[in-house]
Design a protein around this nucleic acid. Structure first.
Lengths: 188, 188
DNA sequence: GTCATGGTAGACAAATTTGTCTACTCATGT
DNA sequence: ACATGAGTAGACAAATTTGTCTACCATGAC
């Protein structure tokens, strides 16, 4: 097994997430990992290939982190609280597995390359599908409309926490999601 | 008055929004506007200056568009529907003022340059503040918690519509926001 | 022993980036 | 009449980008 590949991939993900895939060059990645350029091109066929691998690694890590945080919810309301408490920890740098918070890597990367690179934007989209599936499977009582609401609020909170620096966004989502889970008695 | 400046700024915004500020080069902008490079540097001191001007132009256009769409709401529920119907039109390319939908220019730009350039990320953040203020001022019955919810849902819908191509996201927000506006009768 | 594999260091090619500069044109206000 | 400012075309500088290539080294499989 080549540990250089893992080293490169870790450096790439770290730098890409911190500064954006467009800003970080191949030379910066090899300098950061202390590896020769030839070695990088031995393991990855191009920068695009490396970006795709970094997206996959992030996808895997993020899902694993969230899966642990959503385990064993007793009720839907419980899951709502677990979800947004987890996000709250992430936004406030209390989720070491995910690194220093700089928004959602997939949203950021999609924004950088959407029109240009279909492979990359597809991988960003499928990460979101995987997260949605995880939330769906974690709900004790199936409720697709609630899943819709949770996904929308999650994206909104992540974006607000990043762009506006609104680090409390996740906590405010809890009431909104719970209100939706409890239908109003009368039509408005 | 120099119309070349306006020409350049329009081209820049169009290209930056379509492909991202990092991807689009100075040469592409002057080719697109049919203007000499010297002219660009006569009106803008650097590419960063041009990006900031493009952000301001987009901010102004977006606010004007949204202001018209939120005018004269009879009730808070009415405003909720107006807001998300407007977003729905945008996502589905029925808001010609805003160009072909490619997500939120400010989110995309913040993701590209956040760590690197404080001026740019500040301007992205202040756009969001301005939109929030517009929503606040458009609510017939003041309700800060509702404004919070609307802003979170708006960011979530915009992001989902872009990254996942979920063009119906705005419509699903209506029920969620209305449920929040109508408090549940019992605690959950 | 030999040969494939994975690795290093770094020169190099080719393209592209931002920004400057020269030399020239055209209009306009005083 | 003439200076000034806005404009053009495009050469140029300097840096940076991705990706290739040569030459060499070490290790383990057969």
């Amino acid at each position: 097994m080549s540990d250089k590949r893992a080293l490169l991939l870790n450096s790439a993900l770290e730098l890409f997430y911190e500064k954006g895939t467009g800003t970080v060059g191949i030379n910066e990645i090899i300098a950061h990992s202390g590896v020769a350029k030839k070695t990088l091109y031995h393991h990855f066929s191009s920068k695009e290939d490396l970006i795709l691998a970094a997206l996959s690694l992030r996808d895997q890590r993020y899902l694993q982190w969230l899966r642990e945080r959503l385990a064993d919810a007793d009720s839907n309301a419980d899951l709502v609280r677990q979800l947004f408490n987890a996000l709250n920890d992430w936004f406030n740098d209390r989720a070491t597995e995910l690194g220093h918070f700089r928004g959602c890597f997939f949203i950021n990367t999609a924004g950088e390359s959407a029109t240009r690179n279909q492979l990359i934007s597809d991988r960003c989209a499928s990460h979101k599908v995987a997260v949605r599936r995880l939330i769906t499977d974690s709900l004790p009582q199936p409720n697709d409309r609630l899943v819709d609401a949770l996904c929308l609020l999650k994206e909104g909170a992540t974006t607000s926490a990043f762009v506006q620096g609104d680090k409390q966004a996740a906590l405010r989502c809890i009431d909104i999601a719970l209100a939706f889970d409890t239908p109003a008695p009368f039509a408005v």
